[in-house]
Write a protein that binds this DNA or RNA. Structure first.
Length: 491
RNA sequence: CGGGGUAUAGCACAGUCCGGUUAGUGUACCUGCUUUGGGAGCAGGGGGUCGCAGGUUCGAAUCCUGCUACCCCGACCA
């Protein structure tokens, strides 16, 4: 086992790249930096999307859709925003092609130049706030609680499947409020939704906190994030929620009459998670045999592999397998019964391990004789034989146990890779030799943060929301500090 | 954008230095038989503008020139 995949120890990065491709999640496309998400990978994304969408709706949000293209001029209206995104924008300049005069192909028709270039959205604040201007006149029009599922484009220099691609899928919530406090509450509520999703569905523990000024979203007054620790000791930012203050309302002149009849600018939040969560999911739990999926997000939770010799056995195993499949379905378990005779059982075992199916049932002549079935769990690779009678209940309980177990495993890993450092030497030693999260004192200046990054490649992932105050000295400058912040090398 | 590298079958690669039969190996694919409780075995078979364009030569995957694409390191990366 494992010989089909580079091991994590051998080369973590290569392990990840191979796993994503071999487990049929995604592959590189003919377009630089853009991936094809394959059916199996997309099925996982759909599960994530469905769960998140329900959580958004449960917190009062509605879905809508805004254009892919944004007029260039919109971007310049919010100074920090344009500064943050300008270097990675794809731009549409023409609207027509024509045949080349020499007949060797087609070319952009120079006569079809757009009056104003269009930016392929890297995020939609500008087009949405330009729209909200028309939607909002009175406090009675507020709040607006809108989410959109969309694709965005950021022209990244170096890309990796799911973790950083030039085009990616995400959701972006954009809300408008009458008061500052309401917008802040919304921002906090949504980062909590993300944290709950990460922990309950992805089985991935996260640390919630504020970004420092350096790492903040371009145009935000405060950015909340959730940070997860991957198995190579690097942090992955998995979701962000921004309190935008009145910045975009001012940039797009979105005012409303409050109850006192006075005009005021609208308060805003925006929040998003992307297909990067797929990368997080892969790296959080998987092992050298392949993916390990949490039952709540697995495209199918159970696979039944038949084992048979000859036509007679084929028929009896098929019949028995279908009965078990039906039992499982009654318990709300998603099942795939793989009756293909084009692959052997051993091949299928390896295949479904690679694809991370949480539970595998093997059913053969031996089992039919004894009224039993073999149950293998992906997370621990343990195999046990149970009576067919009542198997659905056993599997249901096992799925819950697996969901819990992989969370605990990830939690334990994080606990074992979270450290405190009091000096720069100690700090570097941890990063170089152990990896993981490091809590350390910092003097609170952007300058020091940048110097630490230059020196150690570690960045401040966040200032945790539940942080205890503690007197100390900055590990870099020795200046006084009131609390430790969370450092790590990051993706 | 700087430094380095690569381009040969679906995929992974050898062959290139030192030009010379019909461009090869693994894997995948197709057919047949035997197999089926952890990625089966044997036999047979199909698949190539050797990245593109030009040049040198009796002869180019191989040498020369130009171009293009991709990869790695750095820079960049809410």
């Amino acid at each position: 086992m494992g010989k089909f995949l580079t091991s994590r120890e051998e080369n973590y990065s290569q392990w990840y790249n191979e796993l994503v491709v071999k487990a049929d999640l995604a592959e590189n496309s003919a377009v630089r930096g853009c991936m094809v998400i394959k059916p199996y990978g997309f099925a996982i994304w759909e599960k994530m999307k469905d769960a998140l969408d329900q959580m958004f709706k449960d917190t009062g949000h509605e879905n809508a859709y805004f254009p892919l293209f944004i007029p260039k001029s919109f971007f310049s209206k919010e100074a920090a925003h344009v500064e943050g995104f300008a270097k990675e924008c794809a731009v549409v300049t023409h609207y027509r092609l024509r045949n080349k005069a020499d007949g060797t192909g087609i070319e952009v028709d120079p006569d079809a130049k757009l009056e104003e270039e269009l930016i392929v959205r890297p995020t939609s604040e500008t087009i949405i706030w330009n729209t909200y201007k028309n939607w909002i006149q009175s406090y009675r029009d507020l709040p607006i609680l809108v989410n959109q599922w969309a694709n965005v484009v950021r022209w990244e220099m170096r890309t990796r499947l799911f973790l950083r691609t030039a085009e990616f899928l995400w959701q972006e919530g954009h809300t408008a409020h009458a008061t500052k406090q309401e917008a802040i509450d919304e921002t906090v509520q949504m980062i909590n939704v993300y944290a709950e999703f990460a922990e309950k569905f992805m089985a991935m523990p996260v640390i919630m906190g504020h970004k420092t000024e350096n790492e903040r979203f371009a145009g935000a007054l405060d950015t909340y994030c959730i940070e997860a620790l991957m198995q190579d000791g690097k942090a992955l930012q998995s979701g962000t929620s921004h309190f935008l203050g009145q910045n975009f309302a001012k940039a797009f002149d979105v005012k409303f009459s409050n109850k006192e009849g006075k005009l005021d600018y609208v308060w805003a939040s925006s929040w998003g998670v992307s297909t990067r969560l797929m990368g997080a999911l892969v790296m959080a739990h998987s092992d050298d045999n392949g993916l390990v999926l949490p039952p709540k997000l697995a495209p199918y939770q159970v696979v039944i592999v038949p084992i048979y010799k000859g036509e007679d056995q084929y028929r009896t195993v098929l019949e028995a397998g279908n009965k078990i499949k039906d039992q499982l379905k009654e318990y709300g378990i998603s099942v795939k019964f793989d009756m293909r005779d084009t692959h052997k059982p051993g091949w299928k075992f390896a295949e479904y391990e690679l694809k991370g199916v949480p539970v595998r049932l093997a059913l053969g002549a031996r089992d039919l004789e004894n009224g039993t079935i073999e149950v293998a769990r992906r997370d621990t690779l343990e195999k046990n034989t149970y009576p067919q009678e009542g198997i659905a209940k056993v599997v249901k309980d096992l799925l819950n146990e697996i969901q819990e177990n992989i969370y605990q495993k990830a939690f334990k890993y994080r606990a074992e890779h979270t450290f405190s450092a009091d000096t720069l030497e100690e700090f570097k030693d941890i990063l170089d030799n152990k990896g993981g999260f490091v809590y350390a004192h910092w003097d609170g200046t952007a300058e020091t943060e940048l110097k630490i990054k230059e020196d150690t490649k570690a960045t401040i992932r966040c200032i945790p929301v539940d942080n205890k105050l503690e007197e100390g000295k900055c590990i870099y400058t020795g200046k006084p500090s009131a609390q430790r912040v969370l450092f790590a090398k990051a993706y």
